[in-house]
């Protein structure tokens, strides 16, 4: 079963980390990821740049409107995601709990994947 693990956190907090703090968090997350990679359960993952670098195309207008910033103004922002291939929700939660221990604060949204297209550039 494919799940997407969407990472939410207060961007103000995360982008206030010093380089040392950031490196330490990434190193701890790396250990968790490695374990799940070895088990063949971790797919692609990515970390997003701050929402100040984001642009939104709003389709409700015709032609669509291009706006600066993220789609939603919320306290916690989408900062990245993982794709995992697990038995079910309990195992997805186990992965999320391990990540949470390595990087406290914020929230993970565990969302089943409906359609998954592999990266066409690597599929060749």
């Amino acid at each position: 079963m494919l799940y997407a693990l969407l990472c939410y956190h207060d961007e103000d907090v995360v982008w206030s980390w010093s380089k040392e703090e950031d490196d330490a968090v990434m190193a701890r997350l790396g250990q968790v990821q490695e374990k799940w990679v070895k088990a063949g359960k971790l797919g692609p993952s990515l970390r997003l740049l701050p929402t100040t670098a984001a642009t939104t195309l709003r389709k409700s207008e015709d032609p669509p409107l291009v706006l600066d910033g993220p789609f939603a103004e919320t306290k916690e922002q989408l900062l990245g995601f993982y794709i995992i291939d697990v038995e079910g929700l309990e195992e997805a939660l186990a992965f999320a709990r391990e990540l949470a221990a390595a990087n406290p604060g914020g929230a993970y949204e565990i969302r089943p994947v409906g359609l998954y297209n592999a990266d066409p550039r690597t599929a060749v």
Binding site: W15, P50, T51, T52, G69
Partner: peptide, 12 residues
């Protein structure tokens, strides 16, 4: 950080 904050207040 100050510039990021300013941009969040003035995103456009």
């Amino acid at each position: 950080r100050l510039a990021r904050l300013l941009l969040r207040l003035f995103p456009a």
